Computed example of a mutant assay.
Amino acid sequence: MEEGNWKKRTVKNGDFVLPGEYLGVMEEYLPGDGVIVEDGNLYSTRAGWVRIDKDKIEISLEPASKVPPIPKKGDIVYARVLDVKQQAVLLKLIKIEGQSRGVATSTLAGIHISQVKDGFVEDLRNEFKIGDIVRARVIADEKSPIQLTTKDPDLGVVYALCSKCRTPLVRKGNQLVCPKCGNIETRKLSTLYRKVNI
């Protein structure tokens, strides 16, 4: 095979490419992350896996050197509650939904009392407890801590332990019940409570 033909091979979704490899032409795809355009041709700027988004008509590269992902506005994330204050909850980000790796950079996040749920929140301690695992959406990622919301029904606490005996709580209606000591607690619950693997 001649050098020229090798460079013009057709790449498929999931192919591994090296920097400078030919990926296609502008008429076929728009350049995404890790892709540059030269004379109408698309080339890789880094080693990685080809990702073709047919809806966006975009070709991009998932980097080979797996840099942990950085949460962006709109991402769904999982986080553990570190502290519950009067006006906000402080959390440590665990991962971005759909990503297999942990989170990069600053892993602190916050949920302001106004972003917990629709309606009035009297006491944040009735919505979250230290150690809870929360499913939330990023609403601001410009500075640390990253700002989250749990207003949607599928957002909120997805895993909680009894604050008395540390047994995993079971959902009964809108409350959480400890199967061991019978303690009843409230949270801003996600409809996915104990239905997601983190």
Rank of each mutant, 00 (worst) to 15 (best):
D123Q: 08
D132R: 03
G156P: 06
Q175W: 15
Y159T: 04
L148M: 09
K172G: 00
D141H: 10
I130V: 14
L155G: 01
N174R: 00
K143G: 08
C162R: 02
L176F: 03
K129V: 15
T150M: 00
V170P: 06
K129W: 07
Q147S: 09
S163T: 14
R166E: 14
I133Q: 06
P153Q: 01
Y159C: 05
S144Y: 04
Y159D: 01
P145H: 00
D154I: 03
F128K: 14
R171D: 05
K164F: 11
L148T: 04
P168R: 14
K172M: 00
P153H: 05
V158C: 11
Q147R: 10
V157A: 12
A136F: 04
E127M: 05
T149M: 12
K129N: 11
V138N: 06
L169C: 02
N126F: 10
R135V: 12
L148V: 09
V170G: 01
L148Y: 03
K143F: 11
N126C: 12
K172C: 02
K151A: 00
L176M: 07
K164I: 12
A136G: 07
T150L: 01
D141R: 10
D141V: 09
P145L: 07
V138G: 00
L148P: 06
E142D: 02
G131F: 13
L124M: 06
R137E: 01
K164G: 05
Q175R: 12
T149W: 15
R137F: 04
I139E: 02
I130Y: 11
P153M: 00
R137I: 03
D132Y: 04
R137M: 00
T167Y: 13
S144R: 07
R135S: 11
P168Q: 07
R166D: 12
L169A: 03
V170R: 08
Y159S: 08
D152C: 03
L124W: 06
T149H: 14
L148I: 07
L169I: 09
P153C: 02
G131N: 14
D123R: 08
L161W: 11
I130P: 11
G173L: 03
Q175G: 09
T167N: 13
N174V: 05
L124F: 07
Q175C: 14
D152R: 09
Q175M: 15
R171C: 03
G173Y: 10
V157R: 12
K143C: 08
P145W: 03
V138Q: 04
K151M: 04
A136L: 07
A160S: 08
P168M: 13
K129D: 14
V138W: 07
T149C: 12
S163W: 13
E122L: 14
L169H: 06
K129G: 15
G173N: 10
L169N: 06
G156I: 10
C165V: 02
C165Q: 08
L176R: 07
I139D: 04
E142A: 02
Q147P: 03
T167K: 15
D152K: 09
V158I: 12
D154Y: 06
D152L: 12
R125N: 11
G173R: 07
Q175K: 14
D152W: 07
T149G: 13
Y159N: 11
K172D: 05
D123M: 08
L148D: 08
V138H: 01
D154H: 04
R125P: 06
C162K: 08
D123W: 09
P153I: 00
R166N: 15
C162L: 06
K172R: 03
Q147W: 12
S144W: 11
E142C: 02
E127V: 00
